[in-house]
């Protein structure tokens, strides 16, 4: 068998011409407050205030890009999105649709306020399970909550194999070959599809939506669902379905700022003196 590998983009996605088949990829995306303006906790609901404009989590833009590249490499297939929000916010989804995803499912329900990571995973898994995905892709952790458990919990709910912290993904027949980030370097992993992967930031270069893409996104279908449509009772979601309860929110002890000096060409001397006073040098 001749394995002609052909490298796209940043060496991340390799097409093996002998093993081409249509790829169906579902990407989990989260819409978050702009991290440049992270907002605050609502003192009553003790959840993130979301009255600010939400954007596509940058961590997820890598997953969307990865999915698009895999489908492009396969030659045919499609990328669909799943997302969950306590309101019917769509601006982040619009970004991902403009990048090239075909459609989205948004589980939008006020009852979802306070939903924990496990229930989030159950809800997303319920929207994914009948889509016939070869791959489910998510970011390794969101840029607002940083919980970092949802992708692997989705895999567990769907009883699928998974590889977290993927820094590159190739499709090889019915398997994926993944480089998985480790503390010391990376592990090479082989995993059969269907599977769930979470990708690290920086894994691919997310494309900017083109004007054409932005216009096309306006007519792409976004299906809204309530938790009840997926078979969840009200007491299974939100705070009541959460196995945790916030008991206290407090300002963390702050660190006092020290001396601030303006460099007049001699600031390096001050740094040397400071290092000397600490006996580092």
């Amino acid at each position: 068998m001749c394995r002609r590998a052909h490298v796209l983009g940043l060496d991340q996605v390799v097409k093996l011409s002998s093993t081409m088949h249509a790829m169906k990829v579902v990407v989990c995306v989260k819409q978050i407050p702009d991290p440049a303006d992270p907002g605050a906790l609502d003192p009553e609901t003790r959840t993130l205030k979301r009255d600010v404009k939400l954007i596509l989590d940058e961590s997820d833009s890598y997953g969307v890009e990865m999915a698009l590249q895999l489908v492009e490499a396969a030659g045919e297939g499609e990328v669909t999105l799943v997302s969950m929000a306590p309101n019917n916010e769509r601006s982040g989804l619009a970004t991902a649709l403009a990048m090239g995803a075909a459609s989205a499912t948004l589980v939008s329900d006020p009852a979802l306020v306070g939903t924990d990571a496990l229930t989030t995973a159950k809800i997303l898994a319920a929207t994914i399970k009948d889509q016939g995905a070869d791959l489910v892709i998510a970011g390794s952790e969101s840029s607002d909550g940083y919980t970092g458990t949802v992708p692997e919990q989705i895999a567990a709910v769907l009883d699928l194999p998974s590889v977290t912290a993927a820094k590159s993904v190739e499709v090889d027949g019915s398997n994926i070959l993944v480089k998985r980030q480790t503390d010391a370097g990376y592990d090479s992993i082989i995993c059969p599809m269907p599977a769930v992967i979470s990708v690290t930031a920086g894994v691919v270069e997310p494309r900017y939506p083109s004007f054409k893409g932005i216009m096309a996104a306006k007519s792409k279908p976004v299906e809204e669902k309530l938790a009840a449509d997926l078979g969840f009772e009200e007491d299974q979601v939100g705070w009541s379905g959460s196995g945790q309860e916030i008991v206290e929110v407090a300002e963390a002890p702050t660190r006092e700022a020290g001396d601030i000096i303006e460099d007049d060409g001699e600031a390096h001397v001050k740094i040397v003196e400071f290092l000397e006073s600490l006996k580092v040098i």
Binding site: D116, A117, L118, A121, Y146, T147, G148, T149, V150, P151, E152, Q153, A155, A156, V157, S162, T164, A165, R180, Q181, T182, D183, S242, G243, Q244
Partner: peptide, 20 residues
């Protein structure tokens, strides 16, 4: 990486929440 994976899989197996 592995700590999160184990916690996530365990939470679904036991149907218990994880605090991260």
């Amino acid at each position: 990486y592995d700590g999160r994976d184990v916690a996530s899989r365990l939470s679904v197996k036991l149907d218990k929440t994880v605090i991260s």
